[in-house]
Computed example of a mutant assay.
Amino acid sequence: MKLSHIPLRLSTGALILNSGAGKIDLDPESAAGLQAMAGQVFPQLERMEPEKFGKYLGYAEMAVGGLLLAPFIPSRLAGLALAGFAGPMVALYLKTPGMTQPDGIRPTQEGTALAKDVWMLGIALALLLDTRGRKPARLH
């Protein structure tokens, strides 16, 4: 792990780990609300019991947060896991009615909480694309 990756991984990993821990014991109504939102991007999730969905989501977030925090995990692998988490979050923001202005990109007041998760995708891409210290690929 590069020194410049530590702030990115530490701040993001801690936030995601904490968020996941808070979802393990969600009440049924909160779990159902999260599930309904996620079902807009992944309709197959709607078939799952809301409490199971909440637990699985919490465990998945904790796994991604743990990967980011573990110094022995290569940054590219941690970035790939973060991209796998952040990509659907951005899709959720873009597909949920009422989250964006009429232009489909800028957030409404209600959409700001999801729109701010775009930074996670940016961090994931920074971890994935950082090639400093690697031989550049040859284009033929």
Rank of each mutant, 00 (worst) to 15 (best):
L114P: 08
L34M: 10
A38P: 08
K116Q: 14
K52E: 03
R47F: 07
Q40I: 14
A60R: 04
R138V: 15
G98S: 13
A32N: 10
P136Q: 12
I6Y: 08
G22Q: 09
T100H: 12
G54K: 05
P88A: 06
A36C: 04
L127S: 04
L17H: 09
I105R: 04
A36D: 07
T96S: 06
L3K: 12
M37R: 05
G133N: 10
A31D: 00
L57T: 06
L34K: 06
T100M: 04
L121Q: 02
M48S: 03
W119N: 10
H5Y: 11
R106E: 08
M120W: 06
T100R: 04
P7Y: 10
Y59V: 01
R138P: 02
N18D: 08
N18F: 08
G104H: 00
A81G: 12
S75R: 06
Y59H: 00
Q109C: 01
D130V: 13
T96I: 05
M1Q: 11
A115N: 14
A113R: 15
R134F: 13
I105L: 15
Y56L: 15
D27Y: 03
S4Y: 09
A14Q: 04
T108D: 03
I16P: 08
L68E: 04
P88M: 06
M1F: 13
L92G: 09
R132V: 03
F85K: 05
